[in-house]
Amino acid sequence: MEAPLLYQPLPVSMAGILTLAEHQQLYEVVSVAVQSDLFAALAEPKSAVELAREKHWETYATECLLDVLFFAGLVQNIDGFYSATAAAATYLHPNSLWRLNHLFENQERPGSLAWQLRQCLAADFQSRGRHEPDWNAERLRQIGVMGLNGSLQATVASVDLAGVSSLLDLGGGHGFYSIALAQKYPELRVTLFDLPPAASLARELVDRFGLADRITCVAGNFLTDDIGTGYDAVLCANILHGDKRDTVLPKVFAALRPGGQLIVKCRVADGVGSLQSALARLVWLTRGGKEMLRQAEWLAFLAQHGFRSLRTVNVWGIFATITGLRP
């Protein structure tokens, strides 16, 4: 599969492969629940707070776990109180004659999802220090390819860059957003700005797609370095995490020309409700995700930084695409 149009569905679908991976993730999550006797604890309805207190678990991690089990059909949620479904009570309760718990005797290897979930459930987890991930080329490539399952295409389809001449892809990482937008808008010139390992990978991929004459990859740290000015549009795809927003957004505002367009791709707490989304939310937590704001919170925060005409133009799984203008 050579140089496809990235703003369209890929010629070879990855859906079957992703489904296999999701099955493995779900198995590991259920194994933690079974080995923790969670379904015995939910013989009577409990809130997430009550369950967390009983199990000495961290509350938000408990909520994420229960969300997955709800969409998997193993717990029910009635007005915020969770209890085991008939299937879970019959086949996954440790004292049931019909228990099948032996099917979930998973050996948790360090680094596995089950192992990471247990770390997150530990009551003191939120007090531990979090470390910035190692943004090496392979990690970025993995993130980029995963985004091509429809998430990237949904964002590109939801924005209108007709007549836009210059775009800054801030923290553009793998470069697939830059490539997709340049493919869709032949008059668009893109500057991708990211750390040296990311810029190097993006440059390699841009060359492979034959777009080196229209996409410039600049190595730098957008938290400390000058990111330029006069852009018609700036894309911030999954970079506006809590500890960075107040630093980055004033620089983005200054980088846009008056009337320029802001495009934000972000994780949201009120995305599409599904098992896939619940698993994605939990995996995000286990990999160091610190927060997930609601769409209204994102809109209010961006407005506080001076952007106007803000609106959510797309929601895909746990991701939302928000656009706005610099007055």
Rank of each mutant, 00 (worst) to 15 (best):
R203V: 01
F301K: 11
E297I: 08
T19N: 12
Q261Y: 05
L148V: 08
L249M: 13
W316D: 11
K290Y: 06
Q304G: 08
R214Y: 02
L69W: 07
A300N: 09
K244G: 00
L262P: 03
T224P: 02
K290E: 15
S31C: 04
S112N: 02
G289V: 10
G80N: 04
S274C: 02
L192N: 07
A157C: 09
K290R: 14
D160H: 13
Q153K: 05
L279G: 05
E138D: 14
F222S: 03
A154G: 09
A21Q: 15
Q183F: 06
G259N: 11
T224W: 03
F39H: 02
T323Q: 06
T312D: 01
L256D: 07
F81C: 04
M14C: 07
L121V: 06
L195S: 11
L10W: 07
R128F: 03
T90N: 05
W135N: 11
I215E: 03
Y177I: 10
V315S: 04
Y91E: 07
C64L: 15
G306Y: 00
E63S: 08
P11E: 10
L299R: 05
E58R: 11
I322R: 00
L211C: 04
L249N: 03
A233G: 06
Q107S: 12
L195N: 05
D134K: 13
L275I: 12
T90S: 09
T321R: 05
R118P: 04
A212Y: 02
L235F: 04
K184T: 08
V234K: 03
E108K: 15
A123N: 03
Q76Y: 11
W298T: 08
L148G: 02
I215L: 00
A233H: 04
